[in-house]
Each structure stands twice: as structure tokens, then as C-alpha cells.
Design a protein around this nucleic acid. Structure first.
Length: 104
DNA sequence: CCTATGACTGCAA
DNA sequence: TTTGCAGCCATAG
């Protein structure tokens, strides 16, 4: 891996993303911070948007700080299915952050 | 170089 | 609880 790649924003985001365990979620802000961008929540979303539709990375484990999905339909429904399939439940359209938020 | 644009946030009202 | 908005920051034009 070239030095340029490990400093690439997307690569850093992906590395953290890949470490999120199934059944857990993180916020955009968390993802960015863990990748070295303390205030890069929007940046995280911008990078996730670049991922190919068929990526193997767990992009669906990233939700907003309100415990809601920030994706427009119909992607949001797909994301909700993926999360529910790995045990993350929704209550009144929201995810219980205290219960599922992942912190190393 | 400068402005616009978001899969965002936290806080004030 | 909901809404509005300034702050944020790499990217794109």
C-alpha cells in the first residue's frame, strides 16, 4: 500500500468502517473521529457516498447522531433491513444508541 | 484562489 | 419535540 493511499481520506474511513462489528453501529461523527477527523461528520458521509453499491464494507452500520438513518429512500429501507438482519432493532423509527453504539 | 455542496452536529428558541 | 442555523471540512467546479 502506497503512502499516499494510507493518507487518503477514503482509505482511512474504510479502515475504521471495516472494524465495526456486526450488530453495532457508529455515528458519522464517530466514524470520522476514529479515522482522524474529529469534526468531519459530513466528510464521513461524503466518503461513504463514494462506495460502490456492491461494496463488502459495512456501510449500513453508520447512522446519524439522532439514531436515525440519513439515507434517502429507497436506500434507507435497504439499510434498515441489513441492520435488522444482524440484530439491530428499531423502536419508533430510531435505534437505541446506548445499546448498539460501538465504542472500542 | 474562491465558492458551493453535502449519507452531519450541537445548541438555541 | 421540532426547527433553524452556524460551524465543519475535504472535494468539486
Amino acid at each position: 500500500m502506497s503512502e499516499e493511499e494510507i493518507n487518503n481520506t477514503l482509505a482511512r474511513i474504510c479502515r475504521v468502517l471495516a472494524s465495526i462489528p456486526s450488530g453495532h453501529v457508529v455515528t458519522y461523527g464517530d466514524l470520522a473521529a476514529m479515522a482522524g477527523f474529529p469534526k468531519g461528520a459530513r466528510l464521513a458521509g461524503q466518503q461513504l457516498r463514494k462506495l460502490p453499491k456492491d461494496t463488502k464494507l459495512p456501510w449500513h452500520r453508520v447512522i446519524n447522531a439522532q439514531g436515525r438513518l440519513s439515507l434517502p429512500e429507497p436506500r434507507a429501507s435497504y439499510q434498515r433491513e441489513l441492520l435488522q438482519s444482524e440484530g439491530v432493532s428499531f423502536l419508533k423509527g430510531r435505534i437505541d444508541m446506548a445499546k448498539y453504539r460501538w465504542r472500542p
